[in-house]
């Protein structure tokens, strides 16, 4: 018998009558196992931290991570605040979604914008994606972590996203200067996580390390978790620039000669600063369609991120400098 791994293309997905629940007994499915492992990681991190915080980027991964945290500490409220490093260049719909989340009773949200960026009007058009990302996100994040004296920060990164992420530990040590040294990582065995650190040093914890993009979407669907509407296809005003489809989210995006705004049916697989985030043409207007689309997709989610493609090994460099 030939095992047919390729046949996932051929799987016909019928979500019309999804039955969402599962009795007790029997086998633990892989999604349940991923959930249980993530909850274990969240609890282990909080138990070992003095002052934890959760990096909240508003995207689907942060959303799942927040949902898992609520499960982990139920019925107690979340034992840490959320931190959003705002670049002022996020999609408007992201900020609206964030503010709605912040209104929920159990949420304490800290929003940080790098004041140097504000005073120097750092933007992706004049300063390039590299400098923009470094100043707003990497430096902004370090400022916020220092200001809050946080010794442990949760991040929603997954190992399947990018090659250097594939090698990062679940509990990842950072020096006083927030530096990651990929060659000097602590061995991480079994379920035993070492979060010990000296004053001023910190630990970044990635509860979704072992999740894939597909796992995240399936989980969102099964658990019925609200996400930013930008993930769903809709007619949106876009332009083509540098081979990417960029949404015109506000008037700060100035058209270059030859560029025209078109209404297109697009969605986003990943969310960030709108001028740096590429849309994909899609008809997927609901979760079932998104998941179905993933089975036939031929490009990775990070393709829509300009910052990954700047230079070879670019993500590893950013991370060792303190980027999440």
């Amino acid at each position: 018998m030939t095992p047919d791994v390729r046949s996932r293309d051929a799987v016909s997905v019928n979500f019309d009558q999804v039955v969402k629940f599962w009795g007790e007994g029997a086998v633990i499915s892989y999604l349940a196992e991923l959930e249980a492992q993530s909850i274990h990681i969240l609890r282990e991190a909080v138990a070992q931290a003095e002052n934890p915080v959760m990096l909240y980027s508003i995207g689907k991964d942060s959303t799942v991570m927040l949902h898992l945290a609520r499960k982990a500490f139920f019925p107690a409220p979340l034992p840490f605040p959320l931190l959003h490093v705002d670049t002022t260049w996020k999609f408007k719909e992201m900020i609206a979604f964030r503010d709605k989340v912040a209104d929920e009773a159990d949420i304490r949200l800290i929003v940080h914008t790098n004041p140097e960026c504000v005073s120097q009007s750092i933007n992706p058009f004049d300063h390039g994606s590299s400098l923009h990302t470094d100043m707003w996100k990497t430096q902004g994040l370090k400022q916020a972590l220092d200001a809050g004296e946080f010794d442990l920060a949760f991040g929603g990164a997954r190992r399947d996203e990018e090659k250097s992420r594939a090698k990062e530990r679940v509990f990842s040590f950072r020096t006083m200067k927030h530096v990651w040294d990929p060659k000097n990582q602590r061995p991480e065995l079994w379920n035993l996580y070492n979060a010990r650190h000296a004053r001023g040093e910190s630990i970044r914890v990635f509860p979704l390390s072992n999740w894939t993009e597909l796992d995240v979407w399936q989980y969102i669907m099964i658990e019925d978790i609200p996400v930013v509407p930008l993930y769903f296809a809709r007619q949106r005003p876009v332009i083509e620039r540098h081979g990417m489809t960029i949404m015109v989210d506000d008037e700060r995006l100035k058209l270059l000669p030859g560029e025209v705004i078109e209404e297109k049916m697009v969605r986003f697989r990943t969310l960030g600063c709108y001028p740096l985030t590429g849309a994909v043409e899609s008809e997927a207007t609901d979760l079932a369609a998104i998941i179905e689309e993933m089975f036939v997709s031929r490009s990775s989610e990070r393709q829509g991120r300009l910052i990954d493609h700047d230079q070879a090994g670019s993500m590893e460099k950013k991370k060792s400098e303190g980027y999440f």
Partner: peptide
């Protein structure tokens, strides 16, 4: 009531069902 943890009930979607029955190795 929903519970992700265990697989028993029949799901009417063959796809979701196959995902629910998948085990991690």
């Amino acid at each position: 009531m929903k519970r992700l943890s265990t697989v028993k009930e029949e799901s009417s979607s063959p796809f979701i069902k196959s995902q629910q029955e998948k085990v991690l190795l």
